[in-house]
Nucleic acid binder design. Structure first.
Lengths: 317, 317
DNA sequence: GTGAAAGCGCTAACAG
DNA sequence: CTGTTAGCGCTTTCAC
């Protein structure tokens, strides 16, 4: 021992990996590392992993399911200890078949899997309370007196989008309003085009975007058209990505603890690897409404007939 | 072979790694994955690496040199094929000593190192033409008629900041103007506080920020104070991070090919590993001025005495 | 309890 | 040029 210490001996991780059939590496697969939402999750995950002596491999599919599948195949072959899926999966037969195949093989060699978004595969998961968050956001708008609230949701194939839509619809119908949902991909451009589309018809007095990234696009489009936010239209986002305090108007949104989610994913993986957690249970992380400057009561002229009722509701609370 | 094919045999990467003393993994160490600049580089690098069958480990030091050093130690021990340093290093004895020690040990086991920013260590590098970019940005402002142009630079310990400062100073003195530099860390908050500081004295008519991230902070502070951009003050950034088209006013900046830099870093690593490149040469990637909406000629009232000279210069060119 | 030995799956070196 | 073998450095098992 003295000699080992003296020579500053370090076990060779490759030999150890060969023997134990497991490398001290976790992988995290995201839709796009350059999206602040995923970047933040990655930050949390890498920090937690390194604290445990694990390295983190990042795989950015750039929203292409085939790329994602190729990555997962590589991960399988290199026998990483665990893989964390930060984004949702596809509800598409071919994708699901291949994915469950890989998952089986990962499980087979003793690796673990954790999801950070609701997925059709029944994997252990650490997710944000999307439904409640959407209810909070919509409720906030409703409470302000809005009734024509449109939602810009994500692709139908994404369960996260489903959940957020469900929360929105619940709140809307609960208040006697008609839900109105249009869909876009979860990018800035998705947000701008969706907003442009919304503006073509009878414009809503408030817009709820399923992600901050899209809300940024919405804000940009509104700014470009010279429409005042929140004067003419209120906007709410989701996620609370970093840097939001610095854009104008400061975006009202629902805070998702992204870095915490990443870290929790790693912790969960460790538990799974130690065999201390054999459940495929989903643990839900709390979200919080962050009211900032992009929301205000609707203009009186916007829906004259309904104003009195709305005011009454506000006064009562 | 037929049998191997039939059984869909795959070589075991761990056994191979043990034997070849090298894992098919490259590492990229960044100051902050959640900073769009680094996120974009990571995107480029992971894509290029996966195309070659390599996985990419991401290490985010969160701007803490100690964390970075710890990561590099882990990387050494796990014998990754190569490590890419995306950000600059510290010019500090302790840091440099440890870093060169790790570098030596990486070289010793046959790994390669590439830098994506100018560093005091003489490693092979793929860098953007920072000096020229800064000259371009400053020249653009000068050409518009500005003379009181302040620069918000990065920490003195960062060579990238040095180079951008040098380009700025060159352009300024070349035009007979006095350079005026203040420093901040390369974050949004750094930008806001630096701008606030600038506003306390005799405000410049234009501000050149050493990074878009800081420029975002500058814009935010100006917006908050109700100062019109570019009407009262022009702002130029550096990097051209994604999403800039969607903030208002659209930021004039210098485009750095970030994803390309990341990919080039990986390619270079591969060359180094194949022994086809033993040079520690720096290859410079071209940058491009992106003129958008955050720059305009200075207000006539801003510097009345100097106006004629400035106009003369413009007319002449 | 301590100590020796087998073998993880590959590659490189060497013999035929 | 093809076929065989030693050994990378660890962990686990088994004998003492």
């Amino acid at each position: 021992m003295a000699a080992a210490n003296h020579l500053s001996y370090r076990p060779n991780p490759m030999a150890r990996a060969l023997r134990t059939r497991r490398v001290p590496t976790v992988a995290i697969v995201v839709h796009d590392v350059a999206d602040p939402y995923f970047a933040e999750i990655v930050r949390g995950a890498t920090a937690a992993a390194s604290a445990r002596g694990y390295l983190t491999v990042v795989c950015s599919s750039d929203r292409d399911p085939m790329t994602e599948l190729r990555y997962v195949e590589m991960l399988c072959e290199s026998r990483v200890s665990g893989v964390i899926f930060a984004g949702g999966g596809l509800d598409e037969p071919h994708y699901r078949r291949r994915m469950t195949g890989y998952a089986r093989s990962i499980e087979h060699y003793g690796g673990a899997i954790v999801a950070l978004a609701p997925r059709s595969e029944s994997w252990p998961a650490e997710v944000a309370d999307n439904r409640h968050g959407a209810r909070l956001a919509t409720g906030h708008l409703l409470g302000l007196g809005h009734r024509r609230i449109a939602m810009i949701s994500g692709p139908t194939t994404l369960r996260t989008a489903h959940e957020r839509e469900a929360g929105y619809s619940e709140a809307m119908t609960g208040a006697g309003c008609d839900p109105f949902v249009i869909r876009a991909d979860l990018t800035i451009v998705g947000g701008t085009t969706a907003m442009a589309q919304l503006l073509h018809g009878e414009a809503p007095t408030a817009v709820f975007a399923a992600s901050d990234t899209m809300a940024l696009g919405v804000l940009s489009e509104l700014m470009r058209k010279g429409i005042d936010v929140p004067g003419a239209i209120s906007v709410v986002g989701f996620d609370d990505i970093p840097g939001l305090e610095f854009i104008h108007p400061r975006l009202t949104t629902v805070r998702v603890p992204m870095a915490e989610l990443g870290a929790a994913g790693v912790e969960r993986l460790m538990l799974l690897l130690d065999g201390e957690d054999r459940s495929s249970q989903t643990v839900v992380h709390q979200v919080e409404l962050m009211v900032r400057e992009s929301t205000a009561p609707p203009r009186v002229s916007a829906s004259p007939a309904r104003r009195p009722a709305a005011s009454a509701r506000i006064r009562r609370s």
